[in-house]
């Protein structure tokens, strides 16, 4: 097991290097000059040159890339070109904010989807299924930001129940009630965003499982419908769903880019969007590495979980 995990991680390293190299090259090819965001218009040419030298922007690309990789390995993500703040420090504040939003939403959606999916799958083509599946079809087609706008209009503007932006009211940073007030709208939007896809997945595998022989055997023994569904089918449906849990790991960082932007939630998503529009490439690269790493770790995690939960898979290649 441990050998397998180490092997997988070693395989992932070149992949990650390749991804960052491609992005690094492309960002350097971009029709922008990184120096523009450091300098001010009243600087002389010599001053700009000096800055350029100081930031190492005159070195060949591969040297710059090497320096960047070494720094990342040391845990130094560099500094924002625009605000000159340490990216590491920014990330330390922003990642927990995103997790606070994404984790509860994903877990809610996850649990709800198991129930809804089982109900829909077992009542195939009857009204509960039609209702749930209809909701999922519409949900998948609905842009998150549109739903967010509608929620904002009704609960923010019309009924004035919840504040529209941010995570805290200034001066009330420690108040939990205040946090909850800010939290509820993005939370609902995000949950609704995650839900349809997961529900469909559970529904699909429930339908598949109900065709299996063991269900017929249970029926022959006179087991109750609900008992078969939650005791036997439920267990088998959960196995593939657990792998989804691993793959959801990167969402803790990038799962809410749009929702965070629209609600001005101070998380990674809005940080990233701001960095993108300002061409603040050290930030963009850091987030890229972070999400790439999490994707790879997430895939690994889901494989490991799969092996742990399904005793049929013993051999690991």
């Amino acid at each position: 097991m441990l050998k397998y995990i180490i092997k997988r991680i070693l395989q992932a390293v070149p992949l990650l290097l390749l991804i960052t190299l491609i992005c690094f090259t492309l960002i350097n090819l971009a029709p922008y000059d990184a120096i523009d965001s450091i300098t001010t218009p009243d600087m002389s040419k010599a001053e700009i040159e000096a800055k350029r030298e100081a930031y190492g922007l005159n070195d060949p690309l591969i040297v710059q890339y090497g320096r960047w990789v070494v720094n990342i390995l040391k845990g130094d993500f560099g500094y924002s070109l625009l605000s000159h703040t340490s990216i590491k420090y920014d990330l330390k504040i922003r990642i927990p904010a995103t997790i606070k939003l994404v984790l509860p939403s994903y877990l809610t959606a996850y649990l709800l989807s198991i129930v809804l999916g089982l109900v829909a799958g077992s009542h195939k083509n009857k009204w509960p299924d039609k209702l749930i599946d209809g909701f999922c079809s519409v949900g998948i087609s609905m842009p998150t930001f549109w739903f967010a706008m509608i929620v904002m209009y009704f609960f923010g503007y019309k009924f004035r129940l919840f504040p529209l932006m941010g995570m805290h009211t200034i001066g009330l940073e420690d108040s939990f009630a205040d946090f909850m007030k800010h939290f509820i709208m993005p939370y609902v939007v995000l949950t609704v965003g995650f839900l349809p896809d997961l529900t469909r997945y559970v529904r699909g595998s429930t339908i598949g499982q109900l065709k299996e022989d063991y269900v017929i055997v249970q029926q022959a023994f006179g087991a109750k419908r609900t008992e078969i569904l939650f005791k036997h089918v439920g267990k088998n449906v959960l196995i593939p769903l657990i792998t989804k849990l691993g793959m959801a790991l990167p969402m803790l960082v990038t799962g809410a880019v749009i929702t965070e932007t629209i609600f001005s939630w101070p998380g990674i998503g809005s940080y990233f969007v701001k960095a993108i529009s300002a061409m603040d490439y050290p930030i963009v690269m850091s987030i890229l590495v972070l999400s790439g790493t999490l994707v790879i770790l997430g895939n690994l995690l889901s494989d490991v979980l799969y092996c742990l939960t399904d005793p049929r898979i013993k051999t690991m290649k």
């Binding site: 991804i19 492309l26 971009a30 990038t254 880019v257 749009i258 969007v273 993108i276 999400s291 994707v295």
Partner: peptide, 24 residues
């Protein structure tokens, strides 16, 4: 297939925004 892996390792929203910057 490794190329496919590389492309699928990063959430699309990150990839697309980074690349979107490069083009006019």
């Amino acid at each position: 297939m490794r190329l496919v892996d590389v492309f699928s390792s990063i959430p699309w929203i990150i990839m697309v925004t980074v690349f979107g910057l490069l083009f006019k």
